[in-house]
Design a protein around this nucleic acid. Structure first.
Length: 226
DNA sequence: GCCCAGGTGGGTA
DNA sequence: TACCCACATGGG
């Protein structure tokens, strides 16, 4: 096993920011819906959309599916790309209905790795959305790579990872080696992604020559945070 | 007015 | 494989 590069960053972020208790949602289904709505969109706008959708349907999946497409789109308008996302959300929920909207049943049904492939086969579910669902809704050991993660790897010169899957595999491999058991690995992968997002969109958002708040200060400089 | 935000899919060379 | 573009709102 080569020298770890992500674990030191993880520990510094955790020490600087404290635990995250992610994902910000009340149920696995809400995590799944939020994961679709937050595609290329700020979380603030997603919260508005979730509130409107909750108002209209109580986030009961059958009720969401019973809405007309244009009504659903109107509910989630604030999250942007509302026509596209209304369609994606319907496709996803229709697929999820075969498991009676039961996350546990969904987790049990598939062999290792099979569930991820099946999620990726759904229109509108790409790698980041799939891994968000796997990690934060289902509690499975997958690391979520996002724009912040690529930026962090770049700013801190953590190495060359050509593409999403390479970076995900590298982080997961390091964490699997460090922590034992899926439960613990999941917990730390969950926390690492959460810390990266929190660091990216709060602490280091401002255009400053260094980040005085976190332990990445010496290298933490960029157009946009990290 | 301009840039960006916890992406994804489709088209073209 | 590597780019390009559409999709769209709301905040700084």
């Amino acid at each position: 096993m080569p020298r770890p590069v992500f674990l030191p960053v993880y520990r510094r972020l955790l020490q600087a920011l404290g635990p995250s208790h992610w994902w910000p949602a009340e149920s696995p289904l809400e995590v799944m819906i939020g994961a679709i709505l937050t595609q290329n969109t700020s979380w603030k706008n997603v919260e508005r959309a979730l509130s409107a959708l909750r108002e209209a349907t109580d986030l009961v999946p059958e009720r969401i599916l019973s809405l007309d497409q244009d009504v659903l789109a109107a509910c989630i308008r604030s999250s942007g790309y509302y026509n596209q996302k209304a369609h994606r959300l319907s496709l996803f929920l229709r697929w999820f209905s075969q498991f009676d909207f039961d996350p546990k049943r969904l987790g049990r049904h598939h062999p290792v790795g099979g569930l991820r492939s099946e999620l990726l086969s759904l229109k509108g579910i790409g790698p980041e959305t799939a891994d968000s669902i796997l990690c934060y809704a289902l509690g499975l050991p997958y690391f979520v790579v996002d724009a912040y993660t690529f930026r962090l790897v770049d700013r801190l010169s953590l190495g060359a990872y050509p593409g999403y899957e390479h970076l995900r595999a590298a982080v997961e491999s390091e964490f699997r080696h460090e922590f034992s058991g899926d439960r613990l690995v999941t917990q730390h992968l969950n926390e690492f992604h959460a810390l990266i997002v929190r660091h990216g969109n709060t602490v280091c958002r401002k255009r400053s020559p260094s980040c005085g708040e976190c332990s990445l200060r010496s290298r933490c400089r960029s157009r946009n945070g990290l």
